[in-house]
Design a binder for these strands. Structure first.
Lengths: 154, 154
DNA sequence: GGAAATCAATCAGTGCACTGATTAGTTCCC
DNA sequence: GGGAACTAATCAGTGCACTGATTGATTTCC
């Protein structure tokens, strides 16, 4: 009997948290547009004309995943993809009018959903929660690119 | 310009948290066995002979996902699946010796990984973090099965 | 005892997420 | 100007996660 208590494992809790969120999103926000898709729309509202890779960076999706997400949004005609005339490798992305409309609608609903999601916590706990989660994620992200091996010269 | 700050969206942070965890898991725990797979092994160490559906319940995976995870563990010969002689619908699950060995090995490594993962927080913050995440997840889980519609009689 | 309801497991379909390899453009630098 | 290095995007492969439909076994209840 060497079983472990998973409720003390942050990774396990992170997964459950995301599942809980997914559930709430589906019922309160949209069954068509997913939360990562919304994140992409949002990034393009903030900075129209970004290329695919950069959007992925902004919302935290790797090159493969962002390509799929963008394809789906393109198929639904929520964004346009045009070759960058100045760099033929890139595609520049821009929301369509439909995309803007969807973003506006979902912005309202996500705000409501966030309230419900965090409702079990007091106002101070909510702030703390966001802060703690962010700090843990940021720190782990930081381990990704090892701390810049000191090069002799450059 | 109606873009939103995603760093105040718990769902977005939850996704990033899980990604961060996945990254750390891969480098510090195992590239073969995933975190959900470990959760299943762990559930079967605690309660050998569970059926598939119940294992799913214990670790928080739906019927489809748990089936896949169990198949993978079965293919790697980490668990055995036998028809319940008393209920032909069920399969009873039990770890093999290999399964037990893997569980033991990964238990040590996950403990180390959890420390690193939570290292950016002080000891009190770590407890708080686990508590807050759990409360939010539990509450959202609770919304899943609506509070038992009061039936006339039964 | 047998039809109806229930239940465990599987299947089909969609979507997120990552790694490693490939393709096609661009830049660097001799 | 042309090869080497780099870079954006895609492709192939694996795994998690959910819903809705189906299949086969069991229980319930008349």
């Amino acid at each position: 009997m060497a079983a472990v208590d998973l409720s003390t494992h942050p990774g396990h809790l992170a997964r459950r948290l995301q599942q809980a969120h997914h559930l709430l999103w589906n019922t309160m926000v949209s069954e068509e547009i997913t939360s990562p898709q919304f994140a992409v729309l949002n990034a393009l509202v903030a900075e129209p004309g970004l290329d695919q890779r950069t959007v992925g960076e902004r919302v935290g999706l790797d090159r493969s995943t962002i390509a799929e997400v963008i394809n789906r949004l393109g198929r639904r005609a929520l964004l346009d993809k045009v070759r960058d005339p100045r760099d033929g490798r890139r595609f520049l992305l821009r929301l369509t009018d439909d995309g803007l409309r969807v973003h506006r609608k979902l912005t309202v609903r996500t705000a409501r959903m966030n309230q419900v999601f965090l409702a079990p916590l007091s106002a101070e706990e909510q702030d703390l929660f966001l802060d703690l989660v962010q700090r843990v994620s940021d720190a782990a992200e930081g381990l990704r690119n090892p701390p810049e091996p000191p090069r002799a010269q450059r």
